[in-house]
């Protein structure tokens, strides 16, 4: 996990102001990476990262130390991302696709339900390699598959998998319940997994193809 270099004790004491220089030094890279992960280009990501730290400075007085500086920063970033045109256009695309186009199809992408029989056993087991191949082409496809998911789901996943934040931190940042986070991660991972499978990543992989296994 890339954030492990940071000290776990990054809570600012309740009464003292945030050390902005230290915050920039410690968290710039993480915030910038998260902004890129949300689909922004380098220039946009730099801009929004700067704005995030500006806001941190402005709100330093109101920071009560109830959460870590890092969580506070990601919360600011998330709010800024939600106002960003790229985020808005992605969100709009999903809103316009989901309700009428085919909610059932979208749901199927996210869910696993039709892969199991009534006893909860695999009806359509996963296809292809045991794990997806770690190659640049797969990562490109992954990007496309991730783009097809609602931005908030993608953010939840990235905060979890790339930034290594805890569930509690992510729930605080996205202002959602633990249950909701579980649903988001479930949908996102299945959507991406199904997408990669359907793109032929699985079929095209040379080794380890299976899926014919027996149930316990």
């Amino acid at each position: 996990m890339s954030q492990t270099a940071e000290s776990p004790r990054d809570d600012a004491p309740a009464s003292s102001p945030i050390d902005i220089e230290k915050a920039v030094d410690q968290y710039f890279q993480q915030i910038f990476r998260a902004a890129r992960g949300a689909g922004l280009n380098d220039g946009e990501a730099e801009e929004i990262t700067q704005e995030t730290f500006m806001t941190l400075l402005e709100k330093a007085d109101t920071f009560e130390g109830r959460s870590a500086v890092r969580t506070f920063l990601f919360g600011i970033l998330y709010n800024k991302l939600r106002e960003h045109r790229r985020w808005l256009s992605q969100a709009r695309r999903h809103e316009s696709l989901a309700p009428d186009a085919d909610d059932v199809a979208a749901e199927r992408l996210d869910q696993l339900a039709d892969r199991f029989d009534d006893d909860g056993l695999w009806l359509h087991p996963p296809q292809g390699p045991e794990a997806f191949v770690y190659a640049r082409e797969t990562r490109h496809l992954l990007s496309d598959c991730m783009d097809s998911a609602p931005p908030v789901q993608r953010m939840a996943f990235l905060l979890r998998e790339v930034e290594g934040l805890s569930s509690d931190e992510i729930c605080k940042i996205l202002d959602i319940s633990r249950t909701n986070l579980g649903v988001m991660l479930h949908r996102f991972r299945n959507r991406v997994r199904n997408c990669l499978e359907s793109q032929g990543i699985a079929a095209g992989a040379a080794h380890g193809a299976r899926g014919e296994g027996e149930h316990p």
């Binding site: 770690y134 992954l142 997994r193």
Partner: peptide, 12 residues
Amino acid sequence: QVDSIGTLARQR
């Protein structure tokens, strides 16, 4: 496969 999606995302 699910685990490898996380690894791929970190690489990406």
